[in-house]
Design a protein around this nucleic acid. Structure first.
Length: 582
RNA sequence: CGGGGAUUAGCGCAGUGGUAGCGCGUCUGUUUCGGGAGCAGAAGGUCAAGAGUUCGAAUCUCUUAUUCCCGACCA
């Protein structure tokens, strides 16, 4: 490919709306162009990269006996009603009508579509385990997409689905896919990728992991143990909380003028914050009871954990009106005195494990001391949920090995779920077992965001000039520069090299632009090809060219007749480093 | 869905009431060059759209659209 003909021009300045490094370089290097919010065109450079990523994915999916298929983007409402998700999923699912008024939707994930065909194609225990996958466009009408290709509305996703007769089979296969994913990310050169325990969200199912590219640009918060390797998304992370119990004291009301926050109350009463309790009022919908959460004052409620524990879909802050409506006072709320029949009471484990806490008194400027939940509330009202709904904080102790935990950010590049029978049961997918008995198969599902993976590699591997692509997904293997192309000697030598690179099967991008050296090098850096061959009068005098490796400062002079074997062996070496024995 | 910005040439921006500018890019010459170099010239704009105020609007007012950031949300 000649750079002069490549579609997608490099731009010098930082695009106005780009913030993330990956977004900036993808735009500046001419990889992508934004069409609308969260909707991008992939230009040739990006397309070449994603094609290579997809090839790696195909190889590894095929290696675990995945069979590629292709499902439709547009799906009928009825199919999604079978699983219940037509109603359950919010506005991110795009629904529309065809000319006959038939309800359709844009597939955002394909459990329904895959079960649609699997229930007629997979109905014998002899077929399982079995897996199918596709690489296909998804559309999710995200309420807020951002960050270039990190969070988009339309994107290419590899989604895979497997069926199993037993939980053991599912788990064994799940581990196999986990391994396959490790290989994929390793081969793609995403060196900062780890897997963490994750929430199953609306996908449902028992167990799930997310593959996270650890970097500051990430949107997810990860809790990591530096010693034992415990890794979890903050949404599900657990930590050891130190509990303090002592001889019970009676409940007593105290005057606490101008003490609304836990900090103020603890300071006023002269107790540590972990000797206080706080109440948080939340709502999950217009006709739903308020959620009254009580947690120790020094801890924060983790909404994802709360959602799971209380089986709630949406959570938002309750209004002051709603709080007063149940008999509580904003800033001074406590589970005593209020109308507990009007609320869903959720108690963090820290409250059960502590006593003699300072809590609100449901009237302004008053608190109570000596709060003991079991004695003061549970003895009169038995309807409540106890769960661990506290957010893990940096420095909290690991549940596995008591080491202080670290907090990091991560980009979710892939996820794997054990779905169980959620979709097979609701959509009546059955098979016959060895006793000719009808059974419901278990499912797993496995996703990878292709474009997000590409962007994550940039976030992880770049310098001040542009991306540094791993050879396995680089748009080209070799970038050939002709410095002073208009000079006949240079032109002849460069054209001849270009022709022989091509005939030797090298993927080469040839800068025949006659641009200034600075401009050529800047372009080459933005394109980020691993090996750069520079032809100039200076080195041609010695019958040689310059070989530079992207991301390294130094370069070497290689004789003209040695450049092809040198390149070939260097490229092979680079591939070798990314070939996976894991 | 809340809060805050933005919208003027392909890109990045200036222009606060008198009829449109700069840099980069593009094109034509010239220079023959090692980190976006210089010189000379050229093309390129319904100032997001609509309505209003005014003798006169890119500029003031209102409405709408698009878009970005923060938050909510997120398979």
């Amino acid at each position: 490919m000649r750079l002069s003909k490549l579609i997608g021009r490099r731009i010098k300045e930082k695009p106005k709306d780009a913030e993330l490094v990956s977004h900036i370089y993808l735009q500046r290097g001419g990889y992508v162009r934004q069409v609308s919010t969260g909707i991008f065109t992939l230009l040739p450079l990006a397309k070449r990269i994603t094609a290579k990523i997809e090839k790696i994915i195909r190889e590894e999916m095929n290696a675990v006996d995945g069979q590629e298929c292709l499902m439709p983007v547009v799906l009928p409402r009825e199919l999604w009603e079978e699983s219940g998700r037509y109603q359950a999923v919010g506005k991110e699912l795009v629904r529309f009508k065809d000319r006959n008024g038939k309800d359709l939707l844009l597939g955002m994930t394909h459990e329904e579509a895959v079960v649609h065909f699997a229930r007629t194609e997979v109905n014998s225990y002899k077929q399982m385990p079995i897996m199918t996958y596709q690489i296909q466009t998804k559309f999710r009408d995200e309420p807020r997409s951002r960050g270039g290709l990190i969070r988009v509305r339309e994107f290419t996703m590899k989604d895979a689905y497997s069926w199993h007769t037993t939980q053991e089979c599912l788990e064994t296969y799940y581990q196999k896919v986990h391994k396959a994913y490790e290989k994929i990310f390793f081969r793609a050169g995403l060196s900062n990728c780890i897997s963490v325990e994750s929430d199953t969200g609306m996908m449902g199912g028992a167990k799930a992991h997310e593959f996270m590219a650890v970097c500051d640009a990430g949107e997810d918060t990860l809790i990591l143990c530096p010693k034992c390797g415990y890794k979890a998304n903050k949404e599900v992370a657990k930590a050891i909380v130190q509990y303090h119990k002592e001889a019970e004291q009676p409940l007593a009301e105290i005057h606490t003028p101008n003490c609304k926050t836990i900090e103020e109350v603890a300071a006023f009463v002269k107790v540590p914050e972990h000797k206080t309790a706080k109440a948080v009022c939340l709502r999950s919908g217009d006709n739903e009871p308020l959620i009254f959460v009580v947690i120790r004052g020094d801890l924060e409620v983790n909404e994802a954990k709360l959602r799971k524990a209380a089986q709630l879909k949406n959570i938002e802050m309750a209004s002051e009106f709603e709080i007063r409506n149940i008999g509580a006072e904003p800033g001074y709320a406590a589970p005593m005195d209020i109308d507990l029949n009007k609320v869903k009471l959720v108690i963090d484990k820290s409250i059960i494990e502590s006593n003699n806490l300072v809590c609100g008194a449901n009237r302004v400027d008053y608190h109570r001391t000596g709060f003991n939940f079991m004695r003061d509330v549970a003895s009169k009202h038995s309807q409540y949920i106890v769960a661990d709904i506290a957010s893990v904080r940096e420095g909290d102790l690991c549940v596995e090995c008591s080491t202080p935990l670290q907090v990091r950010r991560g980009i979710e590049v892939g996820n794997i779920f054990q779905l169980g029978t959620k979709y097979t049961a609701s959509m009546a997918h059955t098979y016959l077992d060895e006793n000719s008995k009808e059974q419901i198969p278990l499912m797993g599902c496995y996703g990878i965001g292709v474009g997000r993976l590409m962007a994550s590699v940039i976030e992880n591997q770049h310098d001040n000039y542009g991306p540094i692509w791993p050879i396995s997904i680089a748009p080209f293997e070799v970038h050939l520069n002709a410095l002073t192309y208009s000079d006949e000697k240079v032109k002849t030598a460069a054209e001849s090299l270009y022709a022989s690179f091509i005939s030797q099967g090298l993927e080469v991008l040839f800068d025949d632009s006659d641009g200034k050296p600075g401009s050529q090098f800047a372009d080459a850096d933005l394109i980020g090809v691993p090996f750069r061959v520079i032809v100039s009068l200076k080195t041609l005098e010695q019958n040689s060219v310059e070989l530079k490796i992207r991301g390294q400062k130094t370069s070497e002079i290689v004789a003209l007749d040695a450049i092809i074997p040198t390149l070939k062996s260097r490229i092979a070496e680079a591939h070798q480093k990314l070939s996976c024995s894991c």
